[in-house]
Design a protein around this nucleic acid. Sequence first.
DNA 1: AGATAACTGACGAACGTTCGTTAAATAATG
DNA 2: CATTATTTAACGAACGTTCGTCAGTTATCT
Lengths: 196, 196
Amino acid sequence: MIKLKSDEIKEAALKYFTIHGYEGASLSQIAEEVGMKKQSIYGHFKGKDDLFLQVLRDAKETELSSKLQYFSEVDSLTPEKDLYGFLNLVIDLFQKNEQLKFWLRISFFPPAHLEKSIEKEVVDIEEKVQAILENKFQEWIDAQLIVGDAAKTPTYAFLGVVDSIMLELVYGNDEHRLIEKLEASWTVFWRGISLH
Amino acid sequence: MIKLKSDEIKEAALKYFTIHGYEGASLSQIAEEVGMKKQSIYGHFKGKDDLFLQVLRDAKETELSSKLQYFSEVDSLTPEKDLYGFLNLVIDLFQKNEQLKFWLRISFFPPAHLEKSIEKEVVDIEEKVQAILENKFQEWIDAQLIVGDAAKTPTYAFLGVVDSIMLELVYGNDEHRLIEKLEASWTVFWRGISLH
DNA sequence: AGATAACTGACGAACGTTCGTTAAATAATG
DNA sequence: CATTATTTAACGAACGTTCGTCAGTTATCT
């Protein structure tokens, strides 16, 4: 199984966009990474923006599918296990998948001239994840497995926990601290929505 | 009260660094904002890095002093009011103070060649805020006003809530959503640490 | 007159991009 | 099979621009 040159380029671009951002990443560096000159990139992509947007869409797909897949697999009524498992999934994905790091950086600090189109993709993903999460919480509420808030309350709170974990990941210089923050946030969150 | 030209430059630089990041901000744009040529900036700063680092240190001071001041003023034993007030302070500061936005962006995505020195400043601030917060929680725990965890647990969990709120702020295209996330996170968090 | 501050001019380097060319791989033709 | 013709991919060279930076000059004000 050989890998396409355009995929190699996207791979290198992903790396540099993630580390240096859109403006900080240069085509010559990306080209050098795959062993060619920057002009050759134009044989595969229309330009820097095109390359960037293709990397963006790949990352979006990865992010979306991996998250949706998780919740399609857990259909049991065990919120404690499912939610904690999701947090660990996020950590796992983030650490071994460059695309999630890219996605996080670009969704919060997009290049100004592409802001509008990026925002659309981000909102799109966000709504889908939120919707499926809200459904799950509603099921658990109906089954009286967690406290009877409006479903939006635990949904937003949980998304907040996910965000804070992701921030700790991107900051990412202290694995031990990450674990501690995860445990702390999870402990308090779960106590905040569980019946006891 | 006249304002120094160098402060005007720093003000403009803060704006462009915040919006476009280090690499995306150009000296000519910054100079134009204050009505001068980019070469004239060198009469006030040694170069781009110097300007950036001075902006960084100003932002650090603002961030640190405003947060520390808040907790020095609330010495009462009313965790619910104090913590919720802190979240609103963060929102308030963020919305009217460009320096906090700058600080957030740069602390998570610093320019690569200044990463080390920036990280030192970030860790410095983080430790101080965490320390003072941990002390407060310890007091409340001792006074049996909140649940008797290790003080680190509510501290980390609360810092997580702060982070998630800040992320929503930087994402910042929906004021209504921000309020909802704040209320949801706060509701669950408080229920997670309060005695009931 | 002396000092301060902004100016003009110019620098090398890097940027993203386009052009025309060359070499290799593939398809079409005898 | 051998020989053209066609497409593909990477190339060097150069484009115009912008970048950050340095030096020298002019204007402003005590």
